[in-house]
């Protein structure tokens, strides 16, 4: 569940999580959750569209400036760092924060970022390049509008099926 949801997404619909994602702290349940979160199995055969772009994770357009990336990271950290939430939600938030941290690590490093951008272009995953009906024509109208509000899965697949490149 949490693996398919964008943290930026969550911040807008936080009240939702608390009810839908409240899970028992039974050990086995915990473990199942964890192994699922592992994105297991991670192999060539597993569908790559499951991965959200790093920009989506931070809720930013791909032309975001370094400062915007830093600010967004900090804002998300304040919301999702496990130190800032109740003890019973720690595990869940740890996963989300790890995802945010991993995205930030790449995007904050200009060399890694350009390498990532290049690799994304190759497989046709670059975001915010082509307006679709679900997106505002002007990305500056609403900075976060391109972040899918329902599921990322559908969003990712659309790019694939459109075969726009």
């Amino acid at each position: 569940m949490s693996a398919t949801r964008s943290p930026a997404d969550l911040s807008s619909a936080r009240s939702n999580i608390h009810t839908t994602q409240s899970r028992s702290s039974v050990d086995t349940e915990d473990r199942r959750e964890r192994s699922r979160d592992w994105q297991w199995p991670r192999f060539p055969s597993s569908n790559p569209e499951k991965k959200r772009s790093l920009y989506e994770v931070l809720g930013l357009p791909s032309e975001a400036t370094e400062e915007e990336i830093r600010n967004s990271y900090r804002k998300l950290a304040l919301k999702f760092h496990p130190d800032r939430v109740a003890p019973e939600k720690r595990d869940e938030y740890t996963h989300l924060f790890c995802e945010i941290g991993a995205a930030y690590e790449i995007l904050a490093d200009c060399r890694a970022r350009s390498a990532y951008d290049a690799s994304q272009k190759l497989v046709g995953f670059r975001t915010v390049l082509r307006p679709t009906s679900s997106m505002p024509t002007n990305p500056h109208e609403n900075r976060n509008a391109h972040v899918p509000q329902t599921t990322t899965r559908r969003y990712g697949r659309r790019w694939e099926t459109e075969k726009c490149w």
Binding site: W40, P41, H81
Partner: peptide
């Protein structure tokens, strides 16, 4: 395929999780 995952939580506890898969 042996997947080795390292996980450090907010309290700085390190866990190593290993799984074995076949293609």
């Amino acid at each position: 395929l042996i997947n080795i995952c390292m996980d450090v939580d907010a309290s700085d506890v390190l866990r190593v999780v290993v799984g074995v898969c076949m293609p």
